[in-house]
Design a protein around this nucleic acid. Structure first.
Length: 461
DNA sequence: CGTCTCCCTG
DNA sequence: CAGGGAGACG
């Protein structure tokens, strides 16, 4: 059972920590630069790289060749996708990114063992290096195939993509099978997360559960600590300086790259047209890292995954968060949704969600305030918002449709304050001023509570 | 100029 | 809920 809100004892006027929200403009969001991790933090959180496999030096040159070919191909792809007349441009680039990601893991990653590549999970150590060599040559053939027949690229991209997702789901299955404690689990958090699993399809549950389960504990505090190995001498890496290798690109760099891609599509907020329908319908976990770590003689496999897009469950969670915070800061959003890759696109979408939530909220408030005025209620003290009130039912229906969440009392208090503010303003005729609601918004934005820890909990193994 | 919010629309 | 315009802000 999800615990009740603990904020009734504490007056709702307690302001959440963070930026000053009482300013006139009320730009509640922190700039991204404020959230950058320090490089020292990053290096602390980066897991140690593995030492070379025995065949590493032998295959290194080979892999370098493969990679240069791949990069050549990717450039070719980008030129194709970049032409204005190319139909379905955004979808293509998305798939190219996918391809590039899997390739860079499979072939480009130097010391890292390959991600479960196109031919499924690896067997033993020896078998793995052997199959890796074979994969390398298979890809060489594929590359030349692409270069001779670029028109088949799309087809092959589809094939690769489906292979990749099959491999992903196989490894996820294996992960679940290999961790019996996930089923037994910790009873309390599972129950707390009940609402987040109650209304979704099996596939979604699996990927969401994965993100809840497999993230390493130290990821919790860092939010974006994973590294992608990549041959890239971009200026971004150099800018970071402070002893960072130019071949190690942090997740933030990758984030910036995607952001650049996204902004180039010229969209203020997340646009459905930017992402393919496939992206919308299916949760695509991004495999950031797959490596074997040896500790106490036990070799264990670690697999990190983040969701690339927001899901129906994220929406549901956001709605429940609205009971606590109407104006969540970017930091709060990050702390509550760190199973998703935070790009500007994602951030904008979350912000837009809360904007929509507020819109509905204020519309209801105005509606009920006017209704109360028409009813002839003259004293604001007659205006209350209880759990049985019509107003509460309307709000609850919107933000907590399944009614499986205990709405905190602090929300009732805020709702009551809002209703009275609207009532007072309207009865004083302030609504003749086109911006009369702004004063109310300013009051309400100070009534945000802290989001309970349950929303930030990130189950990990 | 980019970002954010509000507002309107579908 | 998302898209997009208008306006405010730093």
């Amino acid at each position: 059972m999800f615990p009740r809100c603990g904020c009734t004892a504490e007056p709702f006027l307690s302001f959440p920590p963070g930026p000053d929200r009482s300013g006139s403009g009320d730009s509640n969001l922190l700039s991204f630069s404020q959230m950058e991790l320090s490089s020292s933090t990053q290096s602390r959180l980066h897991p140690p790289l593995l030492s070379c496999d025995h065949d590493c030096s032998l295959t290194k040159a080979k892999r370098a060749r493969v990679e240069s070919i791949i990069r050549g191909m990717v450039c070719t792809e980008q030129r194709h996708a970049g032409t204005p007349e190319s139909a379905g441009e955004s979808e293509e680039t998305g798939q190219h990114l996918h391809l590039r990601r899997s390739f860079s893991h499979d072939c480009g990653g130097e010391e890292k063992p390959p991600l479960y590549g196109l031919s499924g999970p690896p067997g033993g150590e020896g078998a793995r290096s052997d199959s890796r060599r074979k994969q390398g040559w298979r890809k060489l053939k594929l590359m030349s195939f692409f270069q001779s027949r670029p028109e088949r690229l799309q087809l092959m991209a589809d094939v690769f993509k489906s292979e990749l997702s099959r491999a992903v789901s196989r490894s996820v299955d294996a992960l679940f099978r290999s961790m019996p404690l996930l089923q037994e689990g910790d009873a309390a958090p599972q129950a707390e997360e009940k609402w987040s699993f109650s209304c979704c399809g099996a596939a979604e549950v699996q990927t969401e559960a994965l993100s809840l389960v497999v993230q390493r504990p130290d990821l919790e505090r860092s939010e974006a600590p994973s590294t992608l190995l990549c041959h890239d001498s971009s200026s971004e890496a150099e800018e970071q300086g402070s002893g960072r290798s130019s071949t190690v690109i942090s997740l933030q760099d990758e984030e910036q790259r995607r952001d650049a891609r996204w902004t180039s599509v010229k969209s203020k907020v997340n646009s459905r047209s930017v992402r393919s329908p496939h992206h919308q319908a299916v949760v695509e976990p991004i495999l950031l890292e797959s490596l074997k770590m040896e500790s106490d003689g036990v070799v264990r496999s670690n697999l990190y995954a983040l969701n690339e897009g927001l899901t129906a469950n994220h929406l549901k969670k956001a709605k429940l968060m609205f009971f606590y915070t109407r104006y969540p800061s970017s930091l709060v959003l990050r702390s509550c949704f760190h199973d998703v890759q935070f790009t500007r696109c994602i951030t904008s979408q979350l912000i837009k969600w809360f904007s929509n939530f507020r819109e509905f909220y204020y519309i209801q408030m105005e509606k009920f305030a006017r209704a109360a005025l028409v009813d002839g209620r003259l004293d604001v003290r007659d205006l209350t918002v209880g759990r049985e009130s019509e107003l509460f039912r309307a709000l609850n229906m919107h933000y907590n449709k399944a009614n499986d969440f205990q709405v905190p009392d602090c929300f009732l208090v805020v709702a009551e304050v809002t209703l009275r503010e609207f009532y007072a303003a309207i009865s004083l005729g302030k609504d003749r001023d086109p911006s009369w609601k702004k004063a109310i918004y300013k009051v309400i934005c100070k009534l945000d509570s802290d989001v309970p820890a349950q929303f930030r909990i990130h189950q990990s193994v």
